[in-house]
Amino acid sequence: MRRAAKEIVRVEGLVKDFRVGLGVRRKRVLEGISFCVREGEIFGFVGPNGAGKTTTLKVLMGLIRPSDGTARILGHDVRETEFRRHVGFLPENPYFYEFLTGREILGFYARLSGLAGRRIPERVEMLLDWVGLSHAADARLRTYSKGMLQRIGIAQALVHDPSVVFLDEPMSGLDPIGRKEIRDLILRLHGEGKTVFMNTHILSDVELVCDRVAIIVRGAIRYEGCIAEFLDAGELATDLVFGRLPASLAVSLEERFGPLRGQGGRLELRVPDKAVHEVLGLALSADAQVVSVTPHRASLESIFLSAVEGSAEAVAGKAS
């Protein structure tokens, strides 16, 4: 099990209001959110579009000023700048100076990050190789594909060897091969002991790479914890498949747990986890044939959807 120790990111009661129209009205985008990211973990910040993920990340990157609350990275207030030499950032759909080549842009970011001049060429070549762009190092960025821009984006985020990396929707818009490449890069960063904060709404990626997640819906955190705990928190069920089932038992089971589904002469029933022993006992004593017992874990997606729907219901409840 991956162990995490000290807090790398700490957000407390973060509020962000944006001015709307002529600036008289205000719209609250973040409703006092709190969460933390620990050292060495891959943290997934998950939520539907418009939930406040990018706003939160922009506050952390100093691009948006918070209206209230605090946000700290490596113990520093996010409004400070010097600590950013330990922080890397890949924005969503990154844009770079198109008139520069891949090699030039990495050199530019390396100098901005305060890397010593003599170390820059070596570091740039290493990163170009690392993200598989050595062959395009001298091509202008305007000739790069989306996947190549994403990879040069990751390279610029790592050019100064930061200890914590923030990625905003790193897999969005990429084809399956591109997504796998970025996923592998993230796991490689994790292997090097870096802390990774990842904004995303692609849940399969979260399940594959993240240690912990926070779910944000309509500017409020609905859940924060380990992926495993998160999945366990969902209602657990078990699928029982019978080859032979006496009619009387079938009727009583249907009354209690809902309809049996028939498939190829077999009958399938989903029962709550806590009722599995009882149903199996009944089946065996009635001389039923049990073909399979499959524990059914709630998927991240179903829990995510219930969190979103729960939020929508809460909003509707408030409105009525």
Partner: peptide, 12 residues
Amino acid sequence: RRTIYTILSKPI
């Protein structure tokens, strides 16, 4: 063009 995002995320 959002080029400012990556620049201001550096120690600047």
